[in-house]
Design a protein around this nucleic acid. Sequence first.
DNA 1: TATTATTGTGTTTATTGTACACATTGAATC
DNA 2: GATTCAATGTGTACAATAAACACAATAATA
Lengths: 250, 250
Amino acid sequence: MRKSGSTEVFTSLDDFYQRGDQVYLPHLSVDCAIFGFHENQLRVLLLKWKGGKWCLPGGFIKHKESVDTAAHRILQERTGLTDLYLKQFYVFGDPKREKEKKNSPHWIGKRFISIGYYALVEFSKVQPHPDVFSEACEWFDIDEVPGLIYDHKAIMMKALEALRFDLNDHPVGLNLLPKKFTMPELQRLYETILGESIDRRNFQKHMLSMDILIRLEERKTGGAHKAPYLYQFDKRKYMLALRQGLKLGW
Amino acid sequence: MRKSGSTEVFTSLDDFYQRGDQVYLPHLSVDCAIFGFHENQLRVLLLKWKGGKWCLPGGFIKHKESVDTAAHRILQERTGLTDLYLKQFYVFGDPKREKEKKNSPHWIGKRFISIGYYALVEFSKVQPHPDVFSEACEWFDIDEVPGLIYDHKAIMMKALEALRFDLNDHPVGLNLLPKKFTMPELQRLYETILGESIDRRNFQKHMLSMDILIRLEERKTGGAHKAPYLYQFDKRKYMLALRQGLKLGW
DNA sequence: TATTATTGTGTTTATTGTACACATTGAATC
DNA sequence: GATTCAATGTGTACAATAAACACAATAATA
């Protein structure tokens, strides 16, 4: 059994089990690893089934809907965000991937092949919404993710791997950080994604040499110690650099 | 309508149209871009529908079969090879992707979402076999691919892009070249995949510095001009280097 | 035997990456 | 208000890598 997004076309949950395949493609689902960055940590948004395990937000594809649109719809339902960075990264097609599933006669009890997406969101803008199958929707530090249903842990790890890979030529920083951020924050983002530490001074030199950052006059106050400058991305130069193949990674 | 691999479980083609969904998952297909390297050119293996357009080899997923297994089965049927390098690279999920398709009542006339794989094969080992829907199965230079059915041209281009990307950390050379090859041949392979020319001397230096090549005593005779040395990959060191994150690309 | 196009093997220079040092600053402490 | 502390801002020296380039050797052809 799986979670769905909007059930408004159905009169009841039972109706959804009975007639779901009239609306959705059978045997196919979309699962999303939604990444955010908060308090210098990479986080992932998880759902908790009523009385059950945690899982990645997911849903199904309508009969005449593109897979990308389905993923956007699902993400919008879970986060409230319409404008987020979304990337398909892998298909999970092992017939035994849904270990705990009991073979029910419903369409939803059958085997599902899942198309994996990862999303990058600005943490502070997200309003987590549980779906009808869930009792909670919360952020988890990626190092503290609990046991997940089915192969969702593997999906999440693969998403993280894809993210690490994409750091070079996809707008990761731009989509995870707030408008204004400090150099140390940007560095922590890289470090948490790559899982390694980077020399502070070399990092700054490297980032500035790309000419995609604008240093503001402001500094970030409040913290102890010396107040760091605030930066923002020069979005035009950033996207141009990506198109021209500049490596934004480490 | 699409091409299938083995139809041995069906009594006739009509039977396949009528009962295919009892064997295969509906709405799902696998398409493969099979790459080979011959006469210093990267090539792709295409099928020609009886009386129709050219297309990528493809097939369907059995109800209890993993997607990877399905792809291997399809490839084996088309090339005769059981042991080839295969990698899933993208899902094509636009409901309008099958432009020329007429909506027939059969399962096969419905919308299909296609999972794209690319394969790397040693050209000389392949015995191309048309399937039951095809009249021809031939290699094409990737710069001379004719118009393809549906979105298969886009799938092929995306496969090529994925291959270019994977050149760094996947065993591309090992799987595309014959056991023995010359340094110029290896270089042409890189150049044809990357679409750019590389300095001969720097290329050789770079490749040798990786310590994954064994130079044989033999030289390749027959050609005009100076006879080049033959090399082979040190498979153990090659795979070790990949696992350790050595960049084999350019 | 001379020619030609290609291969084998360097060297030099420029660019990039790595390691490390020291001064500055803002809050907290005495 | 001076001192301490932990973090930030800036810079320099060295190593490793990449790019540009030169010349000798060789196998078929003329």
